[in-house]
């Protein structure tokens, strides 16, 4: 299956490589960072990678911006890029912004309640609560499984 990995294939799929690198970077940050804001940044990078995927998908070799002349006399010889993925990703960007703002709001509230935005610290506080609850209520195991 590797014989198709020619130089041309690799360079020709540059946008995908970028997409993969960004996506993995983003995911890695989400998993590896314990600061909630940094996690969120990772999530954003992860989402941006998808924007890249969509936007590059719409590009057609030799294609120009998909804008019709005002007189609507379309030259059949001109190739246009595909505008649809761009439109789609506009929606996705909006969704991304909403997610980010909601997450930031949550982080603010977490900071108010826990006095920290570090995941390790939060987990520690929560496990203390769980232990207390278990002592009070549990006859078996329980808590944050």
């Amino acid at each position: 299956m590797f014989e198709e990995f020619t130089w041309e294939f690799i360079v020709g799929h540059l946008n995908y490589w970028l997409f993969i690198v960004l996506m993995m970077t983003g995911l890695y940050i989400v998993v590896a960072r314990s600061n909630l804001v940094k996690k969120l940044v990772g999530l954003n990078i992860f989402q941006v990678s998808v924007f890249m995927l969509y936007i590059s998908m719409g590009k057609i070799t030799g294609g120009t911006a998909p804008i019709f002349p005002t007189d609507m006399k379309v030259d059949p010889g001109v190739t246009y890029s595909n505008p649809l993925p761009h439109v789609l990703i506009l929606t996705a960007i909006v969704v991304g912004i909403a997610t980010t703002s909601l997450a930031l709001a949550l982080i603010v509230r977490i900071r108010e309640e826990y006095n920290t935005i570090d995941e390790a610290g939060i987990l520690e506080i929560e496990s203390t609560i769980c232990r207390a609850e278990n002592q009070l209520h549990g006859e078996a195991m329980g808590g944050r499984a």
Binding site: L43, V95, I110
Partner: peptide, 19 residues
């Protein structure tokens, strides 16, 4: 208050899923 972290965890995972 753990509802906040629950919501945040869900947001992270849910967004990854949606993406």
């Amino acid at each position: 208050k753990r509802a906040l972290t629950a919501a945040f965890d869900y947001l992270m995972m849910g967004t990854i899923g949606a993406t």
